[in-house]
Design a protein around this nucleic acid. Structure first.
Lengths: 205, 205
DNA sequence: CTCACAATGTGACAGAAATCACAACCGTAT
DNA sequence: ATACGGTTGTGATTTCTGTCACATTGTGAG
């Protein structure tokens, strides 16, 4: 996998350093990559696949925050790594996923030496923060129907596909809602010609 | 105001630089410090008072995210400043407030030269991110009664006072709820001896 | 083909919260 | 003292969402 294309902004020496020190790891769809309370010893750059970042509460309820795709990095792992705190979130591989693990010890050095890395880290913070902001917006101000629309839109934006291959139950989990509610709202959306429903698949129109 | 005590971790040279280049500004209680869509040309360090960071939606609904007190800095302004993006949030002075404005141009340099500044920035990101996470937790998983308890607790933690001098309407605004709901929930809390209600003041027991 | 199981549809009901309507209350400026 | 405005209390009603119960449908294994 030629990962360099994903990070064209990195300087040659930085690429060399990463090539030498980072470890590539694979995860299968469904694998838990990081769990709440776990210590973090490296930052992950996503090369391939999709990682789902979500919050879990005591009763097993889940709540999707955002996805990480190729070319992106986990802001939480960066912050935690630098400060050696435990993670407060869960990360699960949505698809088969390849990541590049950069050991914590290198982070400080890289921040100092490589402008492009520094920029990348700032950029990562910024976009994750923004995504969290829009998540807050949605649950604070919007009803489930609008949140569902936003969810579907984000999903197609992320995957590029118009067909969303998820069961109603999976969607309900991500939105911390219940299957029946999602089914009903989807039906309404179908009546308004916004989607077409199939088994295990929703077609966005 | 001897601001250096608030930032004991800063190196002497960094303090000198800030002293030379930063501008101190005062805001009165109620002043809007930053509004959605506004360009940001400096990062603010809070010296005195409290700043409320919140989100606003189209219909004028507000939603409190967190407070910034003395010794803290606005993560959003840092990120925006570095990338010269517009802000996505509102900042309002809760009390009369003193802040130190550090011009954007200095940021890059400070990040490179002063380890303590770099640490401070990372620390700031981390704590704001964590606060946003707990905000998401609250609205995603908790009902209004629990959110209200959290809100009151946070308020007393922040101000140090056991007496919360807010009207029910103000609380409702911060939680994006309605006055009647808050009044009723507070009554219930009073019956459970968790608070004592007065006019414009709530006593936490 | 048929059985089993997962996914989906649907009605009935419960609870939380928003909204409306209005009463009561407190403080203060005149 | 009174009148006014902001604050708080409370009932009635509605909407949204979650929950329970159960029917229906599609799909793949045997």
């Amino acid at each position: 996998m030629n990962w360099k294309q994903l990070f064209p902004q990195f300087e040659p020496e930085l690429i060399e350093l990463i090539e030498k020190e980072a470890v590539q790891r694979s995860f299968n769809a469904g694998d838990i990559i990081m769990r709440t309370g776990q210590y973090i010893k490296s930052t992950a750059l996503v090369l391939e696949g999709q990682i789902k970042i979500y919050r879990e509460n005591q009763d097993g309820g889940e709540f999707l925050m955002y996805y990480l795709g190729p070319g992106q990095a986990c802001a939480v792992s960066m912050i935690c790594a630098i400060q050696s705190h435990t993670s407060e979130i869960m990360a699960k591989a949505e698809e088969d996923t390849e990541v590049l693990m950069i050991p914590v010890q290198l982070m400080d050095d890289m921040m100092n030496k490589y402008k492009s890395w520094y920029q990348f880290v700032i950029q990562t913070y910024r976009s994750r923060f923004d995504e969290l902001l829009s998540v807050v917006d949605n649950i604070a101000f919007r009803n489930m129907d609008e949140r569902l629309e936003f969810y579907l839109k984000r999903y197609t934006d992320k995957t590029g596909k118009k067909n969303i291959e998820l069961s109603h139950q999976q969607i309900a989990d991500d939105l911390n809602s219940s299957r029946e509610v999602i089914s009903r709202l989807l039906k309404k959306m179908e009546q308004r010609n916004m989607v077409k429903l199939h088994r295990n698949m929703i077609e966005l129109l």
